[in-house]
Amino acid sequence: MPEILKTEDVFVYYGAKDAVRHVNLSFERNTVNALIGPSGCGKTTFLRAINRMHDLTPGARVTGKIILSGEDVYGPETDPVEIRKRIGMVFQKPNPFPTMSIFDNVVAGLKLAGERNRAKLGEVTERSLRQAALWDEVKDRLSAPGSSLSGGQQQRLCIARALAVEPEILLMDEPTSALDPQSTQRIEDLMTSLKNDVTIVIVTHNMQQAARVSDTTSFFLVGDMVEHGLTDQVFTSPKDDRTEAYITGRFG
């Protein structure tokens, strides 16, 4: 079974301090993979290393290898801009571009890549919005501003925007933590259908969410990746005591 992303001995440093240590993980195509752990455990830091978001933070440094479909994300020949087209990201707080319409938001990434054909743009918009389960709600008002949507809809818009550039991997950083339970439910349902098109890596502080949606789970604690495996197995028979303590709610 082809693995789409593999990390070897990844460290992330902020200045001299190591925030994430020794992470060795691999993710297979078309799976949903959860990263869980208490606040400050490094799961988000690790996530953002995958699409080279740390390049934008002065003083941050990533060592080790992150391999996307056989090629090194941090290789000397690699362009971060290209990486970020192949690895998309959805953020914790929905962040559509407020001055742009729904349509323009969805195609923002495509337009940057140079796509000008209106027919193609329209086609991609419909496809992405359908993938994000938002099409029916907005198809009649694609020119309304992105900020006119509710929180849950905005987040689905952001998902559509990320999907429009057809990434291989979609990184999701606590995508539902700012949303109400109903919107959360819709997005979780989304992930099950989305994994047919992209591989998902999701950071969540909500264990039940991880248990519901993911195929594999990795447990982070204070910068270390403690345990990793199929979700069912991690939750019912964790190998590490610390994992068990977190899952049973003894801390976190």
Binding site: V73, D79, A113, D197, L230
Partner: peptide, 23 residues
């Protein structure tokens, strides 16, 4: 765990594909 393999992305090289115009 089954993996549906009908979504195989085209092999795209990672080395700079940023269009010269954008760069």
């Amino acid at each position: 765990m089954t993996v549906s393999s009908n979504a195989v992305p085209s092999a795209r090289a990672l080395s700079s594909k940023l269009s010269p115009a954008r760069r």
